[in-house]
């Protein structure tokens, strides 16, 4: 909660003159930047749609990159940031499908195919002498 409050302050306050604009610039901490960049590769740009925000030229994608980096820098985990974006735009915004009843077939279909396939193959094996 305190982190959120700090974040609200960060958002409300005008940016200090020397602060970097994180829309296009990496975070100074490489570990945090790696987290942010991996997350941004899996957030779908709501303007250009086919692309993740990391590769999109749209303004809104830049805005999202800025917020993602700021939140990661403020200590949020990538999953928290993803959940926050989903709370705004719905599941569509995440290239990583959320596990829930409606998306279960994504994992069940391959599993069924695998089991069915193994059963079919086993029928073709020679019974052991």
């Amino acid at each position: 909660m305190r982190r959120l409050a700090a974040l609200a302050l960060l958002i409300a306050a005008p940016l200090p003159a020397q602060a970097q604009d994180y829309a296009e610039v990496a975070l100074p901490d490489p570990a945090q930047e790696a987290q942010a960049s991996r997350l941004m590769d899996t957030i779908r740009c709501v303007v250009c749609q086919g692309q993740p925000i990391s590769g999109s030229n749209a303004d809104l994608a830049g805005d999202m990159r800025r917020i993602v980096r700021e939140r990661i820098a403020a200590g949020d985990t990538p999953d928290e940031v993803r959940a926050w974006l989903i709370s705004k735009y719905g599941d569509w915004v995440s290239f990583k499908p959320q596990v829930k009843p409606a998306t279960l077939p994504l994992w069940l279909i391959p599993l069924v195919a695998l089991v069915l396939g193994i059963w079919l193959v086993s029928r073709r094996l020679r019974r052991h002498h």
Binding site: A23, V47, D63, I67, K88
Partner: peptide, 14 residues
């Protein structure tokens, strides 16, 4: 709305 922060808060995409 500087940096589209409010827009993203609303979940607006354009």
């Amino acid at each position: 709305d500087e940096g589209g922060r409010a827009q993203i808060e609303f979940g607006s995409s354009g």
